[in-house]
Design a protein around this nucleic acid. Structure first.
Lengths: 253, 253
DNA sequence: GGAATAGTGTCTATCAGACACTATCAG
DNA sequence: CTGATAGTGTCTGATAGACACTATTCC
């Protein structure tokens, strides 16, 4: 016995003996890809095809799509694949964000998406963008959040990702994953300031970064017309460092 | 064209025009339910049926199961339903933990589970346990983690839940959700100590709790043979409070 | 008064923020 | 020498931990 859900493929419905014989929701993965570009936190979006057979034609959306059971061995592998397809970046910082599922978020039917967020240096994209192409672009996060025209519930997912990122930046070395190596401490500080949206004291910043012992000197970088800064790279690109305290400025009188 | 996956219902396979015409993974929800009982952090487990048609017969597992598209409006609603069915608790502290999905975690096929974790006062269970009954029991977390015989990847999920709980307890009021109201500050302190697995200074603890301003006095509780402690309840049961600092003892010399 | 638990006061090492200072380059 | 950016030193107020102290009950 097979039931036809409008606009979706046939699924064998419940009613048989096996307890697992339920109609199955769609399973998708979406990736929120951040970078810092032009002194702003930006997110990568893809434009959905204009033909009206798909939901949200022409809308911008987070890169993502259905889990492919034969290609993807796990959710993480699926996220990596989506990211590689859209950006050409193979091993960025990638972290699970959460999942959003329900009856009404996709007009095609009950669906659940597994959201990830990734941090990449803006420079890394350029190479692959030519290869993959077209309807992919960076958008300033602040502007997208102000006018949330995104497909599905991707506005909500983006908002959650930004909140998570901002809060983790208060006490982790995450912004280092937004920069190409080697980078300098002033560049890293600027990245913190852009993500946090507020200035950070230089002296405290440097003490903190160096005390955390996650940076490796790689010699001075030449600059024009001033003191050449020290270049650094991460000792361990596999995970961020967690600081014992927060960045927040002193409160109260 | 319909393909039969062994031991699973028929699914229309890919190959048609629609981009969403993929074989669909199973979608499940699991809930890690914690309480503090007998001075120990405990987790609620259910025993899987012994007949061998199901995977992991007789094994203990986290309460959970398939999303029911017609009953559950969202993932969170599904988690609430599972929790209500097993414990009778309607509005506990409930937080999304993460998702685990892949080809090999369930022998029946590609599946993805959405894991939640819940905190309930042990007392609240008793009522419903009689009603629902049977193969449900509290286990000490430490013992389960030492000998992880759980079904599926539930050992891994439990471990992640414990880590998340322990780390959040360092800087939030979460343990208050493990106690029945009204509770006293010494009780709350004991709960912190049980979850963290180390003693906590009384004076600092009290200062911290009261400064966070999330407790409401409800009058003294009678006790036997000593000074009656003040009873408290939460001002807001909908969310925990986040402390500005961590509990960690001073490090270094 | 004694035992037991509840609750408070105080002292101090630590440290993050603030900001003034020095260093090194180009022209 | 000037301008610009990189990098360091120093002072101070807030505070978390340690621990000794007082308070309230029952016997």
């Amino acid at each position: 016995m097979t039931r036809k859900i409008p606009g979706s493929p046939a699924i064998k419905s419940a009613g048989a003996t096996a307890a697992n014989d339920f109609p199955r929701p769609y399973t998708t993965v979406d990736v929120v890809i951040f970078t810092v570009l032009n002194d702003a936190l930006q997110v990568l979006l893809v434009q959905r095809p204009s033909d009206a057979t798909d939901p949200f034609p022409g809308h911008w959306a987070l890169p993502g799509g259905f889990v492919n059971v034969s290609l993807d061995d796990s959710l993480l592998a699926c996220a990596r694949r989506k990211l590689l397809e859209k950006t050409g970046v193979a091993s960025p910082y990638l972290e699970q964000l959460g999942s959003w599922g329900g009856a009404s978020r996709d007009p095609r039917g009950w669906s659940a998406t597994h959201a990830y967020f990734a941090l990449i240096p803006a420079q890394d994209l350029a190479l692959a963008k030519g290869a993959n192409a077209a309807d992919v672009a960076w958008f300033k996060v602040d502007e997208v959040l102000r006018a949330p025209e995104l497909a599905f519930d991707h506005g909500e997912i983006l908002q959650a990702a930004v909140e998570r990122l901002r809060s983790k930046v208060e006490y982790t070395s995450l912004p280092a994953f937004l920069l190409p190596e080697p980078f300098t401490l002033p560049q890293l500080q600027r990245t913190y300031e852009v993500v946090l949206g507020r200035p950070v004291d230089k002296s405290g910043f440097r003490t903190r970064m160096l005390a955390a012992d996650f940076l490796e000197e790689v010699g001075h970088i030449e600059s024009e017309s001033n003191r050449p800064p020290m270049g650094y790279r991460l000792k361990d690109r596999s995970a961020p460092v967690i600081f014992p305290r927060t960045f927040s400025p002193r409160q109260g009188s």
